[in-house]
Design a protein around this nucleic acid. Structure first.
Lengths: 144, 144
DNA sequence: TCCAATTCAGTTGCGCGCAATTCAATTGTG
DNA sequence: CACAATTGAATTGCGCGCAACTGAATTGGA
């Protein structure tokens, strides 16, 4: 393949990835708006619904986001009444994030979202699982 | 699969897509920084290197971005001296974006980037082509 | 024990993305 | 032709992402 070809927009992997990621977030947006969440906020809630009481650092490791992104995002979730943020007693450098009852309750309202998105893709669960694995593999290759 | 499972972060397609897309942009960032470009600016340049003299609307259609994103981005490219923006004479509502000699020259400097990224993924061109097609198909399904 | 190095969250600054709005130019219809 | 509807770019406002930095708390080595 020539350099010319490699510089063509439609032949690069990155652009479809970038476009698909944004389109995915846009598909979630109206569903999440009903809960009062943005997509990154939803990701934080997914982590907390699975493991309540995590530090900002742990959230960052799971979501690949830094404190510059998480701190203001968590403050907004706190203002909304979905989470509490408190300095850890055993290590005062870290901050523990935990769900409020309201934050826990939100999980039920979110329960219907994944299926709605799966339907939207029009792919079978097998196709989705394979694509997810491929994209994950790509991510691992790139991110080191 | 249960609702519980569907809400698990690691089982969703969207999160790996989101993480991979950001990781990809991060892989481009140091290479593009040498040219004075961000990743979205690079996408605009890719379009212009292929088809010089396009309107903001056409750019938006190719990149799935609106004027709210493009107008300030194009102003920054203009300030850098890579593009010119001028009101169309036949339709004064639209603005035509074209390359400056400096913008055209940038293409040669960018020529080595796609291959560097391909190497970074550690995938064969066949694997990349297949993944690109799958992601494109997903994008088309979602974005309507 | 002391103190330099590290860690963790927070802050600042900037460039997207995108919804919503504005305004001027153009188009289409009676 | 008139004028309402549409189109295209620009603007505003907000929430990310992320690099770079700050400052406080903790750790680890001499």
């Amino acid at each position: 393949m020539s350099t010319e070809d490699l510089l063509r927009l439609d032949l690069q992997l990155c652009f479809p990835l970038y476009a698909a990621s944004r389109a995915m977030v846009q598909a979630y947006t109206p569903l999440l708006a009903k809960l009062g969440l943005t997509y990154p906020q939803y990701l934080v809630m997914l982590v907390l619904w699975e493991t309540d009481g995590v530090t900002v650092k742990e959230l960052g490791e799971k979501l690949y986001l830094d404190s510059g992104t998480l701190t203001p995002l968590l403050k907004r979730l706190e203002t909304q009444g979905f989470v509490r943020r408190e300095r850890s007693t055993e290590d005062a450098r870290s901050v523990t994030v935990s769900l409020t009852p309201q934050g826990r309750a939100l999980r039920r309202k979110a329960a219907s979202i994944p299926e709605a998105i799966v339907c939207r893709t029009g792919l079978t669960l097998e196709e989705l699982a394979r694509l997810r694995k491929d994209v994950q593999r790509l991510f691992e290759k790139i991110s080191k």
